[in-house]
């Protein structure tokens, strides 16, 4: 068998005539390098920031990082599962209240409550995904909404544990002796950076690629041993674990939890953040999504009457983009890897 019979085709011949627009599979190498450098620069700047700035900015940024994690949990679900959830505030609250309750009632610090929050998020993700594994699209979104709707009632009802309307405070340090603002900031930043690195690795993993195939062609995936139930349950467990992590970080960074931080609006805002970040799972996309949903409400608090209008507009945009499928998204630049 000689090699001449093998028609090795030049790359230029293989490129589709209509293929001038790069598909989202992999961005151009130059672009990827640029993105890596940009991310490194952002991390470097964020890492030295505490030495240069006041504690209010640090506090705001810590909340940004925590919200960016919540946005990532939704983006992962959209990208790898092809599904939309508007009830992720439930899983975020689960993580936040785990930290608060373990401290208040058991005197446990973050070293124990953070892993516990991750484990609880994982289990909650499984418990939601298993019965709903045959639902999709709008039905799944509505099922997730039910979770978010019942949450505040549940928190108020279980007042003995959750502190009811008032909520709970978190005051234990992660590392005693270090400034509070510093610990909160660096924990949130570290969690965000590590999650982004883990997600970048996940994209090339056996499980990540299997999920991407199952999302595009569930039947083809099934013919290669990737079942729909496996895909759905895996992606929900992963997404809920991330959401719960974001809640734990949020509780620590803001040192307080209360039911009105976890309303249906929070869930919708995570989705808005995910759409704004083009469902990307990169650091930059997460920071943009998390930044927008943290800062806009803060700065608009003084705008008073306009706030509901802006919320409504945001909701409208999400609905339009979600319903237009790939139609509208085609006009958006390539998704972040």
């Amino acid at each position: 068998m000689d090699s001449s019979r093998k028609q090795q085709v030049a790359v230029s011949e293989l490129v589709h005539p209509k293929g001038a627009i790069r598909s989202p599979a992999r961005p151009l190498p130059e672009l990827r390098n640029l993105r890596t450098w940009a991310s490194l620069l952002v991390v470097a700047v964020l890492a030295v920031l505490p030495a240069l700035s006041g504690s209010f900015l640090l506090y705001s940024l810590s909340l940004c990082f925590a919200n960016a994690l919540a946005v990532l949990s939704v983006s992962v679900l959209v990208r790898y599962g092809g599904e939309v959830s508007i009830g992720h505030s439930f899983f975020v609250a689960l993580g936040a209240y785990s930290v608060a309750i373990l401290e208040k009632h058991f005197g446990l610090g973050l070293w124990i409550s953070l892993p516990a929050a991750l484990a609880l998020g994982f289990v909650a993700g499984l418990l939601f995904a298993i019965p709903s594994r045959r639902m999709s699209g709008i039905y799944l979104a509505v099922a997730s909404m039910a979770l978010a709707l019942c949450l505040p009632e549940l928190l108020i009802h279980m007042e003995r544990w959750t502190g009811g309307f008032e909520g709970l405070y978190i005051s234990r340090d992660l590392v005693p002796g270090v400034s509070k603002a510093g610990q909160r900031y660096y924990l949130a930043l570290a969690a965000l950076v590590l999650v982004c690195l883990a997600l970048a690795h996940f994209r090339g993993s056996r499980q990540g690629m299997a999920l991407l195939l199952a999302r595009a062609h569930p039947r083809a995936a099934e013919a290669f041993g990737i079942t729909r139930s496996w895909a759905r349950i895996s992606i929900f467990a992963l997404s809920a674990t991330l959401a719960s992590l974001s809640g734990a970080v949020l509780a620590f960074a803001s040192s307080t939890v209360s039911p009105n931080s976890f309303t249906l609006w929070s869930g919708i805002f995570y989705l808005v953040g995910s759409v704004i970040g083009l469902q990307g799972t990169s650091l930059i996309a997460a920071l943009i999504g998390g930044g927008v949903i943290t800062l806009i409400p803060q700065y608009l608090a003084s705008a008073g009457d306009y706030v509901p209008i802006l919320y409504g507009a945001a909701l409208l945009i999400v609905t339009l983009v979600a319903n237009s499928g790939s139609g509208l998204r085609r006009f958006l630049p390539g998704k972040a890897a």
Binding site: K6, Q7, Q8, V9, A10, V11, L14, V15, H16, G19, R22, S23, P24, A25, R26
Partner: peptide, 12 residues
């Protein structure tokens, strides 16, 4: 005989 296309995406 399509190793040259390995790193391209199907739509291309």
């Amino acid at each position: 005989g399509i190793a040259a296309a390995a790193h391209l995406a199907p739509p291309e």
